[in-house]
Write a protein that binds this DNA or RNA. Structure first.
Lengths: 113, 113
DNA sequence: TCGGGTACCGTGCAACGCATGGAACCGGGT
DNA sequence: ACCCGGTTCCATGCGTTGCACGGTACCCGA
């Protein structure tokens, strides 16, 4: 299938980033684990090719910090932790999301309750 | 500001298209009017530079048909009408949107009811 | 020793919103 | 008579970001 060809992958744009922040708000996680956790959520399935560039961006923005830790079953893991800036960004986005979601609902579900 | 630089403009991706279809599901409208109507909805403000390429896509997909009509106050208008295919596409997306919205809500609002 | 699971990462493409700019028509103010 | 602003259409190019693809390296069981 052509890349970005599905409707859903367009929906993910700009949201995935903050879904990752939301997961990191509860616990420090590493990249590979984030992929697995997102796969458990309908419509958010993604791959390493998406996650790692995304995590690099988050680091560049100063929204996460990272620490290395050994693993018992493979190469070392890089754990990501939310910064105070990251928490603020997540809060700001959440407000934007709620407004946006309501607007789209209003247009899309007008006539089908 | 850099284009596409805001969080919101990324959210609009892939959604705007179907918001336009939703508006056309109620009445035939022309491009300039669509811009005004979307500006009335929080988070969906857009411009002609966005709408016209989008409408071209919809035509190419066969989701809308167009008819010209004179205007009393300016150049002629091109009115857009939803096709049966367009209505089906809108229905399909609406289902996808509901699932996606619930997933994001679940992640983002976990802990803040 | 060899394959498969774990774990990291970069490069290049495609989609789409938007800034920018251009064209043509109309009416009102100076 | 002339220009300016509103209306209405459209095309071109850029930036962001998800994803396909490919690469490296470690560990373990068959």
């Amino acid at each position: 299938m052509e890349p970005g060809g599905t409707r859903i992958s367009q929906l993910r744009r700009g949201v995935l980033e903050f879904c990752v922040l939301a997961l990191l708000a509860e616990a420090e996680l590493y990249g590979f684990d984030l992929v697995r956790r997102l796969s458990d959520v309908e419509g958010l399935v993604t791959s390493e090719g998406t996650i790692y560039p995304l995590l690099s961006r988050l680091r560049r923005e100063g929204w996460v910090t990272t620490t290395w830790a050994e693993s018992e079953s493979g190469p070392p893991r890089r754990y990501y932790a939310l910064t105070e800036d990251g928490r603020r960004a997540l809060g700001g986005f959440t407000e934007d999301w709620e407004r946006f979601r309501d607007s789209v609902d209003q247009l899309l579900l007008k006539g089908k309750p």
